[in-house]
Simulated assay, not measured.
Amino acid sequence: MSCHRINELIELLTPEWQKQGHLNLVQIIETLAVEAGHKAPLNEVTDDLLIYHLKMKNEAPDAMIPGIAKDVEVDFKEALLKARGFK
């Protein structure tokens, strides 16, 4: 895992840990994994699962995943011109 992903995970975990200060880090990760629907053993929880779950935790159920939203073109004409190299 690269440093920027570690920093991102720590940044996202910090508010959760502050809300539940009585829990240790492993308990918090376990809670987040269960919330995200992870059913495998705890040692199989990935950083991606934690990062995306923490990013999407307070979003609307139909909200688009970060990273995908930036690639979505709303205007078909703009998307077509961009694909053909005119924009």
Rank of each mutant, 00 (worst) to 15 (best):
D62Q: 07
D47G: 12
E30G: 11
H22M: 07
E59L: 07
A36W: 06
L50N: 01
L50E: 00
H53R: 10
F76E: 06
A33S: 10
Q20I: 04
Y52E: 01
I28M: 08
L13G: 00
K55Y: 13
E16N: 12
T14S: 12
A40P: 01
L25V: 08
D75C: 10
H53G: 09
Q27T: 00
A79M: 07
I68Y: 15
E8D: 12
Q18N: 09
D75Q: 07
P61I: 06
H38K: 08
V74I: 11
K57R: 14
K55S: 02
E44C: 05
G37R: 13
F76C: 01
V45H: 03
A79I: 00
A69S: 13
Q20N: 13
M56L: 10
G21Y: 05
E30H: 11
A40R: 14
E35G: 01
K77S: 07
A79W: 08
P15Q: 05
G37T: 13
N7V: 10
D75E: 08
V34K: 15
I10W: 09
E8V: 03
L25W: 12
L49Q: 07
E73V: 06
L23T: 00
E11A: 15
G21F: 05
K82S: 05
M64R: 10
A36N: 06
A33W: 08
V45Y: 05
L81R: 04
P66H: 09
N43Y: 05
D48E: 08
L32W: 06
L32P: 12
I29Q: 04
N43C: 02
A69I: 04
Y52G: 01
I29P: 07
E8C: 11
G37I: 11
P66M: 09
T14P: 03
H38A: 01
